[in-house]
Computed example of a mutant assay.
Amino acid sequence: MKDYSIIHKNLDKYFIIYSDCFLSRGLVKSSILDITNQQMYFFDTQFYDILSTISLYRIREILLMCEDEVTVESFQELIMFLVSKDLGAFVENVSLFPPINVEWDCYSIISNAIIDVKNKIHNFEKIFIELNDLFCEKIQIRFYSVVGTDIFHKIIHHAIDKRFSHIEFVIKEDAQENRLEDLIAIVKQYPFIHFTIYNSFKDLSTLRFNNISFIKRDLDFCKDCGVISPEYFIIPTMDSYMENSAKLLV
């Protein structure tokens, strides 16, 4: 039988998640980002609403809200996990632990943008002009089908005179053609360009290239909506987490 004595001793206390830990909702699994320790943890999304408001109720009250014994057991396991990873603590007075202000003073109206490319190549000249006017610095462009390297050159051409500090192309591995040398040439010529290649069939343990990374998992425009995987994440710093950001749906 599992030991929940620490919870039972604190039934009349509140539980707070530390202010440097951020919740993110997913379709099936949700996550907690521990910014200070650069760690990411996952939990069932059914507990997202509880964790996002957990400091409003005493532990005893939350247990009474659980609909059955299975949920009670799962919630207690989750609390024990949070304690073991030092993601939160029991407190008597939650007003002594106000949330930190996550606003960031930045000259950018939008500091970063994600552009999804599914069936057609967008008008990147127009898009880049608009993002440049918004002082956007970082852009991720995700392709859901194989495209030729000439497309990358055309897109980069429109970015040359802009203020962008980083552009990442998320592209699918081309099983018919080995274009790695072409990509290496691009990142050498343009240091602000990065490639992430998904659905890769290469031996990832032997691949080490500056500004080029590989993941084995395939991406799907519909299926991957709401799916969280550690492969997709670079754990942010506190500063980068607080930046203004936006997803550009075009």
Rank of each mutant, 00 (worst) to 15 (best):
N199W: 02
I54H: 01
L33M: 12
I79T: 07
I59Y: 02
I6S: 06
K9R: 13
K13N: 12
T53D: 11
L96N: 12
T237I: 08
L207P: 01
N112A: 12
C222P: 01
I215L: 04
I160F: 12
F22G: 00
T206L: 12
L207V: 08
I141N: 03
V187D: 04
L180K: 15
M242R: 15
I109H: 07
F201S: 14
S213T: 15
F195Y: 11
I6Q: 08
K29D: 15
L23M: 11
D68G: 02
A185P: 00
D68N: 15
C21H: 01
W104R: 13
K154L: 08
L11F: 03
Y144M: 07
E130A: 14
N211P: 09
L56I: 04
I129H: 10
D203N: 15
L183E: 07
T237H: 01
L207H: 04
N211V: 05
E173R: 03
M1N: 10
Y107W: 08
V250H: 10
V70F: 11
V72W: 05
A246H: 10
I234M: 13
V94L: 10
F22D: 06
F124Y: 15
L27Y: 11
F201A: 12
D44R: 02
A185Y: 06
D161W: 09
D220P: 04
K29Y: 04
F192C: 01
H158R: 04
S200H: 03
G226S: 10
V28H: 15
Q189N: 08
D161M: 09
S31R: 13
K120E: 14
L249S: 15
L87Q: 12
K138D: 09
K172G: 10
I54Q: 00
R142M: 03
H157F: 14
Y241K: 05
S108K: 02
I228Y: 09
T36G: 11
Y241V: 07
L207R: 12
D12K: 13
K13W: 05
E92T: 04
I235F: 02
K120T: 11
I6W: 00
S24F: 06
D150F: 12
I186A: 02
T45L: 00
A185F: 06
F15C: 04
I141K: 06
D218N: 08
Q39W: 08
M242P: 10
P98M: 09
N112C: 11
P236I: 05
I35C: 00
F221V: 04
L180A: 11
I156F: 08
N93T: 05
F81Y: 15
V147G: 02
L23W: 07
S240F: 11
E69Y: 08
Q76L: 03
F124E: 00
S108L: 06
T196G: 03
I171W: 08
E181S: 14
L96F: 05
C66D: 07
I79R: 03
D220T: 04
F169M: 00
N123C: 01
L219T: 03
A175S: 14
N112R: 14
K13P: 02
K223T: 03
E103N: 13
N101H: 05
Q140T: 14
E77C: 02
F90C: 07
A246L: 13
Y190R: 02
